[in-house]
Simulated scan of single mutants.
Amino acid sequence: MSITAVEIVLPGTVEPEELLTTRRELPPLRAGQALVRVEASGVSFAEQQMRRGKYYDQPAYPFVPGYDLVGTVLEVGSDADAALMGRRVAALTKVGGWASHVVLETADLVEVPADLAADEAETFVVNGITAWQMLHRYAKVRAGQTILVHGANGGVGSTLVQLARAAGVRVIGTASARNAEAVTALGAAPVDYRGDVPAQVRALAPAGVDAVFDHVGGPGIVDSFRLLAPGGTLVAYGSASTKDESGNSRLPVLRLFARLLLWNALPNNRHAHFYNIWSGLRRRTTFRTRLTEDLTAVFALAAQGVLHPQIAARFPLSQAAQALTLAESRTVTGKVVLVPDEQ
Protein backbone atom coordinates (compact mmCIF):
# COMPACT_ATOMS: atom_id res chain seq x y z
CA MET A 1 0.00 0.00 0.00
CA SER A 2 1.52 3.31 -1.08
CA ILE A 3 0.72 6.15 1.32
CA THR A 4 1.66 9.82 1.18
CA ALA A 5 1.65 11.13 4.73
CA VAL A 6 0.91 14.69 5.77
CA GLU A 7 3.45 15.71 8.43
CA ILE A 8 3.95 18.75 10.64
CA VAL A 9 7.64 19.64 10.71
CA LEU A 10 9.51 21.60 13.36
CA PRO A 11 12.26 23.28 11.29
CA GLY A 12 14.20 24.88 14.15
CA THR A 13 13.79 27.12 17.19
CA VAL A 14 10.77 28.88 15.74
CA GLU A 15 7.46 30.32 16.89
CA PRO A 16 4.44 27.99 16.64
CA GLU A 17 3.15 29.72 13.51
CA GLU A 18 6.40 28.81 11.74
CA LEU A 19 5.71 25.07 11.82
CA LEU A 20 5.73 23.56 8.33
CA THR A 21 3.24 21.22 6.67
CA THR A 22 4.87 18.73 4.30
CA ARG A 23 3.96 15.58 2.40
CA ARG A 24 6.14 12.49 2.19
CA GLU A 25 5.67 9.08 0.61
CA LEU A 26 6.20 6.46 3.29
CA PRO A 27 8.64 3.63 2.58
CA PRO A 28 7.45 0.04 2.11
CA LEU A 29 6.91 -1.88 5.32
CA ARG A 30 9.70 -4.07 6.59
CA ALA A 31 9.26 -7.23 8.64
CA GLY A 32 7.61 -6.54 11.99
CA GLN A 33 6.31 -3.10 11.04
CA ALA A 34 2.80 -1.66 10.75
CA LEU A 35 1.26 1.22 8.86
CA VAL A 36 -0.96 3.23 11.21
CA ARG A 37 -3.50 5.90 10.29
CA VAL A 38 -3.20 8.47 13.09
CA GLU A 39 -6.52 9.36 14.74
CA ALA A 40 -5.17 11.43 17.63
CA SER A 41 -1.80 12.80 18.75
CA GLY A 42 -1.03 14.90 21.79
CA VAL A 43 0.54 18.28 22.41
CA SER A 44 2.69 17.81 25.50
CA PHE A 45 5.29 19.79 27.40
CA ALA A 46 7.95 17.90 25.45
CA GLU A 47 6.94 19.57 22.17
CA GLN A 48 6.94 22.95 23.88
CA GLN A 49 10.52 22.36 24.98
CA MET A 50 11.56 20.95 21.60
CA ARG A 51 10.34 24.13 19.92
CA ARG A 52 12.79 26.05 22.08
CA GLY A 53 15.58 23.53 21.57
CA LYS A 54 15.35 22.78 25.30
CA TYR A 55 14.30 19.13 25.41
CA TYR A 56 17.08 17.05 26.90
CA ASP A 57 17.66 14.56 24.08
CA GLN A 58 15.64 15.85 21.14
CA PRO A 59 16.84 15.03 17.60
CA ALA A 60 18.47 17.55 15.28
CA TYR A 61 16.17 19.87 13.34
CA PRO A 62 14.16 19.48 11.20
CA PHE A 63 11.92 16.71 12.52
CA VAL A 64 8.28 15.81 13.03
CA PRO A 65 7.15 16.30 16.66
CA GLY A 66 4.56 14.13 18.36
CA TYR A 67 5.36 12.24 21.55
CA ASP A 68 2.48 9.76 21.39
CA LEU A 69 -0.46 8.75 19.24
CA VAL A 70 -3.53 6.60 18.80
CA GLY A 71 -4.57 5.21 15.43
CA THR A 72 -5.78 2.27 13.38
CA VAL A 73 -3.53 -0.33 11.77
CA LEU A 74 -4.01 -0.35 7.99
CA GLU A 75 -1.31 -2.81 6.96
CA VAL A 76 1.39 -4.99 8.51
CA GLY A 77 4.71 -6.19 7.18
CA SER A 78 5.92 -9.75 6.89
CA ASP A 79 6.25 -11.71 10.14
CA ALA A 80 3.72 -9.39 11.81
CA ASP A 81 0.40 -10.55 13.25
CA ALA A 82 -2.19 -10.03 10.50
CA ALA A 83 -4.87 -9.85 13.22
CA LEU A 84 -3.58 -6.36 14.04
CA MET A 85 -5.10 -4.97 10.86
CA GLY A 86 -8.13 -2.83 11.59
CA ARG A 87 -7.36 -2.59 15.30
CA ARG A 88 -7.02 0.65 17.22
CA VAL A 89 -3.62 0.93 18.89
CA ALA A 90 -1.57 3.40 20.91
CA ALA A 91 2.15 4.08 20.72
CA LEU A 92 4.77 6.09 22.56
CA THR A 93 6.92 7.66 19.85
CA LYS A 94 8.85 10.64 21.33
CA VAL A 95 8.81 12.19 17.84
CA GLY A 96 6.85 11.59 14.64
CA GLY A 97 3.26 11.56 15.92
CA TRP A 98 2.11 14.80 14.29
CA ALA A 99 1.30 13.11 10.99
CA SER A 100 -1.61 11.59 9.12
CA HIS A 101 0.12 8.18 8.85
CA VAL A 102 3.16 6.61 10.48
CA VAL A 103 5.17 3.41 10.22
CA LEU A 104 5.88 1.78 13.59
CA GLU A 105 7.28 -1.44 14.98
CA THR A 106 4.41 -3.75 15.90
CA ALA A 107 6.17 -4.54 19.19
CA ASP A 108 5.63 -0.91 20.22
CA LEU A 109 1.85 -1.00 19.72
CA VAL A 110 -0.58 -1.33 22.62
CA GLU A 111 -4.18 -2.24 21.86
CA VAL A 112 -6.85 0.29 22.84
CA PRO A 113 -10.16 -0.97 24.31
CA ALA A 114 -13.02 -0.76 21.83
CA ASP A 115 -15.10 1.48 24.05
CA LEU A 116 -12.43 4.19 24.30
CA ALA A 117 -12.53 6.88 21.60
CA ALA A 118 -9.22 7.72 19.96
CA ASP A 119 -8.95 11.23 21.44
CA GLU A 120 -9.90 9.91 24.88
CA ALA A 121 -7.32 7.15 24.74
CA GLU A 122 -4.68 9.62 23.54
CA THR A 123 -4.87 11.59 26.78
CA PHE A 124 -3.75 8.46 28.65
CA VAL A 125 -0.73 7.40 26.59
CA VAL A 126 2.35 9.35 27.71
CA ASN A 127 0.39 10.89 30.61
CA GLY A 128 -0.94 7.54 31.77
CA ILE A 129 2.35 5.68 31.51
CA THR A 130 4.15 8.51 33.32
CA ALA A 131 1.57 8.80 36.10
CA TRP A 132 1.22 5.04 36.62
CA GLN A 133 4.93 4.35 36.77
CA MET A 134 5.68 7.28 39.08
CA LEU A 135 2.89 6.28 41.46
CA HIS A 136 3.29 2.51 41.47
CA ARG A 137 6.87 1.78 40.36
CA TYR A 138 8.72 4.70 41.94
CA ALA A 139 6.76 6.09 44.91
CA LYS A 140 4.87 2.80 45.49
CA VAL A 141 1.90 4.63 46.99
CA ARG A 142 -0.52 2.81 49.29
CA ALA A 143 -4.12 3.38 50.25
CA GLY A 144 -4.47 5.85 53.10
CA GLN A 145 -1.35 7.83 52.24
CA THR A 146 -1.25 11.52 51.29
CA ILE A 147 0.58 12.90 48.26
CA LEU A 148 1.27 16.30 46.71
CA VAL A 149 0.88 16.72 42.94
CA HIS A 150 2.26 19.88 41.38
CA GLY A 151 0.33 21.11 38.35
CA ALA A 152 -2.69 18.99 39.23
CA ASN A 153 -4.74 20.48 36.39
CA GLY A 154 -2.21 19.55 33.68
CA GLY A 155 -2.08 16.47 31.48
CA VAL A 156 0.15 14.34 33.71
CA GLY A 157 -1.08 16.01 36.89
CA SER A 158 -4.78 15.35 36.29
CA THR A 159 -4.02 11.72 35.47
CA LEU A 160 -1.86 11.40 38.60
CA VAL A 161 -4.70 12.73 40.75
CA GLN A 162 -7.22 10.29 39.29
CA LEU A 163 -4.94 7.27 39.55
CA ALA A 164 -4.05 8.13 43.12
CA ARG A 165 -7.68 8.57 44.12
CA ALA A 166 -8.49 5.23 42.48
CA ALA A 167 -5.80 3.69 44.72
CA GLY A 168 -7.35 5.18 47.87
CA VAL A 169 -4.73 7.90 48.25
CA ARG A 170 -5.48 11.41 49.51
CA VAL A 171 -4.23 14.10 47.09
CA ILE A 172 -3.22 17.73 47.52
CA GLY A 173 -2.79 19.46 44.17
CA THR A 174 -1.21 22.77 43.21
CA ALA A 175 -2.77 24.88 40.47
CA SER A 176 -3.73 28.48 39.78
CA ALA A 177 -6.75 29.87 41.61
CA ARG A 178 -8.82 29.81 38.41
CA ASN A 179 -8.27 26.04 38.14
CA ALA A 180 -9.11 25.26 41.77
CA GLU A 181 -12.59 24.00 40.92
CA ALA A 182 -11.22 21.66 38.26
CA VAL A 183 -8.71 20.24 40.74
CA THR A 184 -11.45 19.76 43.34
CA ALA A 185 -13.60 17.96 40.75
CA LEU A 186 -10.75 15.53 40.15
CA GLY A 187 -10.76 14.65 43.85
CA ALA A 188 -7.82 16.68 45.16
CA ALA A 189 -7.54 19.47 47.71
CA PRO A 190 -6.42 22.54 45.71
CA VAL A 191 -3.47 24.73 46.69
CA ASP A 192 -2.74 28.04 44.94
CA TYR A 193 0.77 27.75 43.52
CA ARG A 194 1.12 31.54 43.52
CA GLY A 195 0.81 31.63 47.31
CA ASP A 196 2.94 30.15 50.08
CA VAL A 197 2.76 26.54 48.94
CA PRO A 198 4.65 24.98 51.89
CA ALA A 199 2.39 26.77 54.40
CA GLN A 200 -0.76 25.72 52.55
CA VAL A 201 0.38 22.11 52.32
CA ARG A 202 1.44 22.01 55.98
CA ALA A 203 -2.03 23.25 56.95
CA LEU A 204 -3.55 20.27 55.13
CA ALA A 205 -0.86 17.72 56.09
CA PRO A 206 0.91 18.86 59.29
CA ALA A 207 3.10 15.74 59.45
CA GLY A 208 4.15 16.06 55.82
CA VAL A 209 3.16 14.08 52.74
CA ASP A 210 4.16 10.57 51.73
CA ALA A 211 5.11 11.52 48.17
CA VAL A 212 5.58 14.63 46.03
CA PHE A 213 5.41 14.64 42.23
CA ASP A 214 7.25 17.68 40.89
CA HIS A 215 7.66 18.65 37.23
CA VAL A 216 8.62 22.24 38.06
CA GLY A 217 12.17 21.82 39.33
CA GLY A 218 14.19 24.96 40.02
CA PRO A 219 14.47 26.37 43.56
CA GLY A 220 11.02 25.06 44.49
CA ILE A 221 12.29 21.49 44.44
CA VAL A 222 13.81 22.15 47.88
CA ASP A 223 10.34 22.87 49.31
CA SER A 224 9.03 19.69 47.71
CA PHE A 225 11.69 17.62 49.46
CA ARG A 226 11.16 19.36 52.81
CA LEU A 227 7.42 18.65 52.68
CA LEU A 228 8.05 14.91 52.76
CA ALA A 229 7.13 12.97 55.87
CA PRO A 230 9.75 10.53 57.20
CA GLY A 231 10.05 7.68 54.73
CA GLY A 232 8.49 9.82 52.00
CA THR A 233 9.47 9.91 48.32
CA LEU A 234 10.04 12.82 45.95
CA VAL A 235 9.63 12.01 42.26
CA ALA A 236 10.93 14.79 40.00
CA TYR A 237 10.08 14.49 36.33
CA GLY A 238 10.96 17.80 34.75
CA SER A 239 12.27 21.31 35.13
CA ALA A 240 9.46 23.46 33.77
CA SER A 241 10.53 26.50 35.78
CA THR A 242 13.73 26.73 33.73
CA LYS A 243 12.10 26.37 30.29
CA ASP A 244 12.91 29.95 29.28
CA GLU A 245 16.49 29.99 30.55
CA SER A 246 19.17 30.54 27.95
CA GLY A 247 22.24 28.34 27.62
CA ASN A 248 22.78 24.61 27.57
CA SER A 249 19.40 22.84 27.73
CA ARG A 250 20.89 19.92 29.65
CA LEU A 251 22.23 21.91 32.59
CA PRO A 252 18.93 22.40 34.50
CA VAL A 253 18.21 18.67 34.35
CA LEU A 254 21.78 17.76 35.33
CA ARG A 255 21.67 20.19 38.28
CA LEU A 256 18.36 18.69 39.38
CA PHE A 257 19.71 15.17 39.04
CA ALA A 258 22.80 16.04 41.09
CA ARG A 259 20.64 17.52 43.86
CA LEU A 260 18.52 14.37 44.02
CA LEU A 261 21.64 12.20 44.24
CA LEU A 262 22.93 14.34 47.11
CA TRP A 263 19.68 14.04 49.04
CA ASN A 264 19.71 10.28 48.64
CA ALA A 265 23.25 10.18 50.03
CA LEU A 266 22.22 11.98 53.22
CA PRO A 267 20.85 10.05 56.25
CA ASN A 268 17.43 11.74 56.21
CA ASN A 269 15.03 8.76 55.79
CA ARG A 270 13.58 10.30 52.64
CA HIS A 271 13.97 9.27 49.02
CA ALA A 272 14.37 11.22 45.78
CA HIS A 273 14.08 9.97 42.22
CA PHE A 274 14.27 11.47 38.75
CA TYR A 275 11.69 9.86 36.49
CA ASN A 276 12.44 9.41 32.81
CA ILE A 277 9.88 7.49 30.80
CA TRP A 278 12.68 6.16 28.56
CA SER A 279 14.82 4.73 31.35
CA GLY A 280 15.53 1.07 30.75
CA LEU A 281 15.22 1.42 26.97
CA ARG A 282 18.54 -0.40 26.49
CA ARG A 283 16.76 -3.53 27.71
CA ARG A 284 14.19 -3.08 24.97
CA THR A 285 12.18 -6.25 25.59
CA THR A 286 11.76 -5.51 29.29
CA PHE A 287 10.99 -1.85 28.51
CA ARG A 288 8.26 -2.80 26.03
CA THR A 289 6.75 -5.37 28.38
CA ARG A 290 6.57 -2.91 31.26
CA LEU A 291 5.14 -0.17 29.06
CA THR A 292 2.46 -2.48 27.66
CA GLU A 293 1.50 -3.73 31.13
CA ASP A 294 1.23 -0.24 32.58
CA LEU A 295 -0.65 1.37 29.69
CA THR A 296 -3.02 -1.60 29.51
CA ALA A 297 -3.79 -1.14 33.22
CA VAL A 298 -4.49 2.56 32.67
CA PHE A 299 -6.70 1.87 29.64
CA ALA A 300 -8.66 -0.69 31.67
CA LEU A 301 -9.42 1.87 34.37
CA ALA A 302 -10.46 4.38 31.72
CA ALA A 303 -12.73 1.84 30.01
CA GLN A 304 -14.34 1.11 33.41
CA GLY A 305 -15.03 4.81 33.92
CA VAL A 306 -12.65 5.08 36.89
CA LEU A 307 -10.46 7.50 34.94
CA HIS A 308 -11.96 10.32 32.92
CA PRO A 309 -10.12 11.80 29.92
CA GLN A 310 -9.17 15.42 30.43
CA ILE A 311 -9.31 16.91 26.92
CA ALA A 312 -8.51 20.61 27.01
CA ALA A 313 -9.20 21.13 23.28
CA ARG A 314 -9.18 19.36 19.93
CA PHE A 315 -7.51 20.83 16.83
CA PRO A 316 -7.21 19.40 13.33
CA LEU A 317 -3.68 18.45 12.39
CA SER A 318 -3.45 21.42 10.01
CA GLN A 319 -3.90 23.73 13.01
CA ALA A 320 -0.98 22.35 15.01
CA ALA A 321 0.38 25.88 15.46
CA GLN A 322 -2.80 27.03 17.21
CA ALA A 323 -2.83 23.88 19.30
CA LEU A 324 0.75 24.43 20.43
CA THR A 325 0.04 28.08 21.26
CA LEU A 326 -2.90 27.10 23.45
CA ALA A 327 -0.94 24.35 25.20
CA GLU A 328 1.84 26.84 25.99
CA SER A 329 -0.62 29.37 27.43
CA ARG A 330 -0.91 27.38 30.71
CA THR A 331 -4.62 28.25 30.82
CA VAL A 332 -6.04 24.79 30.16
CA THR A 333 -6.98 21.75 32.19
CA GLY A 334 -5.96 18.46 30.65
CA LYS A 335 -4.38 17.83 27.26
CA VAL A 336 -4.59 19.49 23.87
CA VAL A 337 -5.17 16.86 21.19
CA LEU A 338 -4.58 16.89 17.41
CA VAL A 339 -7.10 14.97 15.31
CA PRO A 340 -7.33 14.37 11.55
CA ASP A 341 -8.61 17.13 9.31
CA GLU A 342 -12.10 16.59 7.98
CA GLN A 343 -12.01 15.03 4.55
Rank of each mutant, 00 (worst) to 15 (best):
L20K: 05
L35Q: 03
T13C: 09
P28G: 02
Q48H: 11
S44R: 12
E18L: 05
S44V: 03
F45D: 07
T21E: 12
A40N: 14
R30D: 06
A31V: 04
V38E: 06
Y55D: 11
A46D: 12
L20R: 10
Q48L: 10
L35G: 01
L20S: 03
L19W: 02
T13F: 01
Q48S: 13
V43D: 01
R37T: 08
A31M: 00
V36N: 05
R52A: 08
A46T: 14
Y56S: 11
V14Y: 00
R30I: 00
Q49I: 07
S41G: 13
L29N: 03
S41A: 15
A31H: 03
T22R: 15
P62H: 15
E47K: 02
E15W: 01
S44E: 10
G42H: 07
T13R: 15
T21C: 06
M50Y: 13
G53E: 08
D57A: 14
K54T: 04
G53V: 08
Q48A: 09
V14K: 00
L19E: 00
K54R: 15
V14C: 02
L20C: 00
E39R: 12
A60S: 15
E15A: 07
A40F: 12
T21D: 03
Y55P: 13
S41F: 01
T21R: 15
A46E: 11
G32T: 05
R30Y: 07
R24N: 15
L20W: 01
V14Q: 02
V36Y: 05
R23Y: 10
R24L: 05
E25H: 08
T13M: 09
E15N: 04
Y61T: 08
L26R: 04
R51E: 06
T13S: 06
V38H: 06
E18R: 13
E25K: 09
E47F: 08
L19K: 03
M50V: 02
L29E: 00
L26G: 05
S44F: 05
E25C: 04
Y56A: 14
G32R: 02
Y55R: 09
P59D: 07
T21K: 15
Q33H: 15
R51N: 01
R37A: 11
R52S: 06
L35N: 04
L29W: 12
A40K: 10
G32Y: 00
L20M: 04
A46N: 14
G53Y: 14
E39L: 14
E47C: 05
T21P: 00
Q48P: 00
K54S: 10
T21M: 11
L19D: 00
A31Q: 05
A60C: 10
Q58A: 13
Q48C: 07
G53C: 08
